[in-house]
């Protein structure tokens, strides 16, 4: 039996110039904020941008965007949702709502392939992919089916996050996948940053080109669901600077 979908993926992504996966092996480091914020900034800069939420178990890009998803419109496939003034969004949440999504490995692969093979992105300058934590099925499947994907790694400077992110970097290097650089999230103030840098110079993750450093924002929750407020905040301004470097 032959699965027909892999042969269709390249065609469905043919109009997309660049595909950037925002990943980070440790959970809670802020991948979604960085992916969504960068996508919003690119879109606001006049670049046609799509956002694919591949974090099936923790899909939340739509929550951050304040987007209510129903079933997608069908064309020669399924059409992404246009949200926040022009960003094109596709998420498993369109089909699962806020119910649990208990997928095992092979089903994760099936779902990724289906979304890649039937979503009609059209012409985009950027497709941003919000990856789940870890270096498992989603990362391996994306590399397998979308060979031209480039990765952006996100981390905090926590001693729990840096080594775990370093393992993902090692995997990507081993597979020959391009890694554009690093976003340091929830960055500490200058004094603590200096102390931290001295202690962590051996971390391979920190040797990546630094795309940007996002400050810790204790009031982040008030920005959730309001893309305009997010991009108008200090965090949003820093994300816009990062997007300009992509």
């Amino acid at each position: 039996m032959i699965d027909p979908r892999p042969a269709a993926v390249a065609g469905k992504l043919a109009g997309v110039k660049r595909i950037l996966a925002f990943a980070g092996a440790k959970g809670g480091v802020g991948k979604t904020i960085c992916a969504v914020g960068s996508a919003l900034a690119l879109s606001a800069a006049g670049k046609r941008t799509g956002l694919l939420d591949l974090d099936f178990q923790g899909a939340s890009a739509h929550i951050l965007l304040g987007a209510e998803l129903s079933f997608p419109e069908e064309a020669s496939g399924i059409k992404p949702f246009t949200v926040a003034g022009g960003l094109e969004l596709m998420s498993i949440a369109a089909f699962s709502g806020e119910r649990p999504v208990p997928l095992r490995g092979t089903s994760v692969t099936e779902a990724i392939l289906e979304l890649l093979a039937v979503t009609v992105w059209g012409r985009l300058e950027f497709l941003i992919i919000d990856m789940p934590p870890g270096s498992g099925d989603e990362v391996l499947d994306l590399i397998r089916y979308v060979a031209r994907a480039e990765f952006v790694l996100v981390t905090t400077l926590s001693p729990l996050a840096l080594p775990v992110g370093g393992r993902l970097l090692r995997l990507l290097e081993e597979l020959g996948v391009p890694v554009l650089g690093l976003i340091e999230n929830m960055a500490p103030g200058p004094r603590r940053a200096r102390e931290g840098a001295q202690a962590k110079t051996a971390e391979p993750l920190l040797a990546l080109p630094l795309l940007g450093r996002l400050p810790y924002d204790p009031d982040l929750d008030r920005l959730i669901g309001d893309p305009r407020a997010l991009m108008g905040s200090c965090l949003g301004r820093e994300l816009s600077k990062i997007a300009a470097r992509l």
């Binding site: 027909p4 042969a7 020669s76």
Partner: peptide
Amino acid sequence: MHEWALAEAVLATVEKIR
């Protein structure tokens, strides 16, 4: 109809095999 995309996938695969 997203059946169109599935038909596209079948056709692309048949052409690849051929």
